[in-house]
Design a protein around this nucleic acid. Structure first.
Length: 424
RNA sequence: GGAUGAGUGGCCGAGCGGCUUAAGGCAGCGGUCUUGAAAACCGCCAAAGGUUCAAAGCCUUUCGUGGGUUCGAAUCCCACCUCAUCCGCCA
C-alpha cells in the first residue's frame, strides 16, 4: 500500500517509480480521485459541524427550559443531507484504496532495470558446478529407482503436481526441515512459531496476496485461504500492533506446508517435484525499524545461505531486476541452487524487503525511541529454505554412480546416523 | 452444532442518551531530587483524516463491524464477526 500523501507531494516521483514496473502514469487518476474525495469530505464535515453545534444547543436549551422545537427542526433539515454525503465519501475512499491496493511496491534504487529474468544480476557464487564423473540423474529418476518417490500413487489420490515419499526419502525431508529450524533458532536468533495454515481475507490482503493474486491460492469452502507461504501468518502476526522500538527486530521462523494453485504454470516443470501444489518450507520473517531493514535483508539472506552451505550445495546469489521483482517487494535476492541432474540453476530461496508496503496494509506500527512518533515497521520475508527443493538439490548433488545418495553430515543426526540412502 | 457472557486508546479498566473534550491506573516521554540508578514528586502523552505551501490553530471521524432509532449514541434496537466459558461431538 502506498502513502497517498507522498504521492500528492511528489506525483512525478511516484509515476517514475511505477514506470520502472512497466506501468503508465497513474498519479493523475489517483490525484483526481483524491481531490474528489477531499472535496466531499470537506463538505460533509461542514454539515457535521453545524449539526453537532445545534445538538449541543438543544441540550443547553433543555437545561434552561427554553423551547427547542425550531432548533430540532433546523437540525433535522441539516441531518437530512448527511447520509448521502457519507455514502459518497466512503465510496470515494474505497475507490482510492482499491486503486492504490492494485499498485506494486516502489523499487529500491539499486534494483537493476529489466523486464525479465535475463536482466537479473548474479552477485556472488558459492562453489562451482562440477563433473560428478558419471552422467548425473535427475531427482525423480533417482527417487523412483530407489522406490521412494512415487508420483503415480500421488496422482491416484490427488492428481498431478503431488508426490508420495517413502522410507528414507520421507525421513530425509523431515530431517531437512528439522535441521533448518534448529539452525535458525540456535544460531541465527529466530523464534520458532507454529501457525495456522488457513487464513482469512485480511491476512491475505495484508501480505499483498489479495486482491491481485487470489487465483494463485486455494480457497476453502468457508472462505479461508490455504497459505501459499508461512510469510502470511508470520508477518500478519503483528498486524494492527504498535510495537516498542526496543522489541525490534522481531525474527520469526516456521516450518509449514505451502499450497499453490500454480495457475498459469501449465506445462512448466511438470516432471518431478520441483513445482508442486503442496510443499514444505521453512520461512524467515523479520520485523524491523525502517532504518534497519536494508541491513536485515542482507543478514536474512546470509541465514538462508548458511543452510545451503551446510548441505554442501553449489549456489549463487541473484539480485532480481525490476521486471522479476514481486508485487510487494522493494528488493529481492534469490538464491539459486545448482541441480546437476537438470544442469540448471533453480530458485531455492527468495528473500525480500517489502519496506513499509505490507506494514501499511496491515497497520503494523512502532513507537519511536522518543516515546511519541509512530511509524510503520518494515517487514521482510525469505525462504530459509524451501524443503522440497532442498531435497531435490541434496539428491542430485550428492548422488553416487550406483544411484545411492550420500547424506550430508549435518543431516545424519536426524537420520539415525545413516550416511547413505540406498535401495532396500 | 447448542447455551451464556464479553469486545472501550500501546495495555488494564470506568462509563450504559446531552457538563465525555472517553475517568482512573499501568507503560512511555520530559523534568525535580541523586555521584549514578531506584523510589518519590511534577508535567506531557490515542489514532486517522480535513483545512493549510507548511506549522500552529480550527474542524471531522473512530469505543469489534455494518445497519437502525434520535436534534443528539460508547450508552438504546437489529444483524454479523471475534473471543471466553459450559454442554455436545471429536484427533
Amino acid at each position: 500500500m502506498h502513502d497517498l500523501r507522498a504521492i500528492r507531494a511528489n506525483p512525478a516521483a511516484f509515476d517514475a517509480a511505477m514506470a520502472r514496473r512497466g506501468l503508465g502514469a497513474v498519479s493523475p487518476d489517483i490525484l483526481a480521485l483524491d481531490a474528489e474525495r477531499r472535496a466531499v469530505l470537506t463538505e460533509l464535515q461542514g454539515l457535521q459541524e453545524r449539526a453537532r453545534a445545534i445538538s449541543k444547543q438543544v441540550a443547553e436549551f433543555r437545561r434552561t427550559g427554553l423551547p427547542t422545537e425550531s432548533l430540532i427542526l433546523n437540525a433535522a433539515q441539516i441531518a437530512q443531507n448527511i447520509p448521502a454525503l457519507e455514502q459518497r465519501a466512503s465510496q470515494k475512499e474505497d475507490e482510492v484504496q482499491r486503486l492504490l491496493a492494485g499498485l506494486p511496491n516502489v523499487l529500491d534504487p539499486d534494483v537493476p532495470d529489466g523486464t525479465d529474468e535475463s536482466a537479473n544480476l548474479v552477485l556472488a557464487q558459492h562453489g562451482e558446478p562440477r563433473d560428478l564423473g558419471f552422467a548425473p540423474r535427475q531427482h525423480f529418476e533417482l527417487g523412483e529407482a530407489l522406490g521412494m518417490m512415487d508420483f503415480a500413487a500421488a496422482a491416484k489420490m490427488s492428481g498431478s503436481r503431488f508426490v508420495v515419499l517413502r522410507g528414507a526419502l520421507a525421513r530425509l525431508e523431515r530431517a531437512l526441515g528439522q535441521f533448518m529450524l534448529d539452525l535458525h533458532t540456535r544460531e541465527h536468533g529466530y523464534t520458532e512459531m507454529a501457525v495456522p495454515t488457513l487464513v482469512n481475507d485480511a491476512a491475505a490482503y495484508g501480505t499483498d496476496k489479495l486482491p491481485k493474486f487470489g487465483d494463485t491460492m486455494f480457497r476453502t469452502t468457508d472462505g479461508r485461504w490455504l497459505i501459499p507461504t508461512a510469510e502470511v501468518p508470520l508477518t500478519f502476526s503483528v498486524a494492527n500492533e504498535v510495537l516498542a522500538a526496543r522489541a525490534l527486530p522481531l525474527r520469526l521462523t516456521a516450518l509449514t506446508e505451502c499450497y499453490r494453485s500454480e495457475a498459469g504454470a501449465a506445462g512448466r516443470d511438470t516432471r518431478g517435484m520441483l513445482r508442486q501444489h503442496q510443499f514444505r518450507k521453512v520461512e524467515l520473517v523479520s520485523i524491523t525499524a525502517p532504518e534497519a531493514s536494508a541491513e536485515e535483508h542482507e543478514r536474512m539472506t546470509r541465514c538462508a545461505e548458511a543452510v545451503l552451505r551446510a548441505l554442501g550445495l553449489t549456489f549463487r546469489r541473484v539480485l532480481l531486476c525490476a521486471g522479476d521483482t514481486g508485487f510487494g517487494a522493494a528488493k529481492t535476492l534469490d538464491l539459486e541452487v545448482w541441480l546437476p541432474g537438470q544442469q540448471a540453476w533453480r530458485e531455492i530461496s527468495s528473500c525480500s524487503n517489502t519496506r513499509d508496503f505490507q506494514a501499511r496494509r496491515m497497520g503494523a506500527r512502532m513507537r519511536g525511541t522518543d516515546g511519541k512518533a509512530l511509524s510503520f515497521v518494515h517487514t521482510l520475508n525469505g525462504s530459509g529454505v524451501a524443503v522440497g527443493r532442498a531435497l531435490i538439490a541434496v539428491m542430485e548433488s550428492h548422488q553416487q554412480a550406483d544411484g545411492s545418495i550420500l547424506i550430508p553430515p549435518v543431516l545424519r543426526p536426524y537420520m539415525g546416523g545413516a550416511e547413505r540412502i540406498a535401495a532396500a
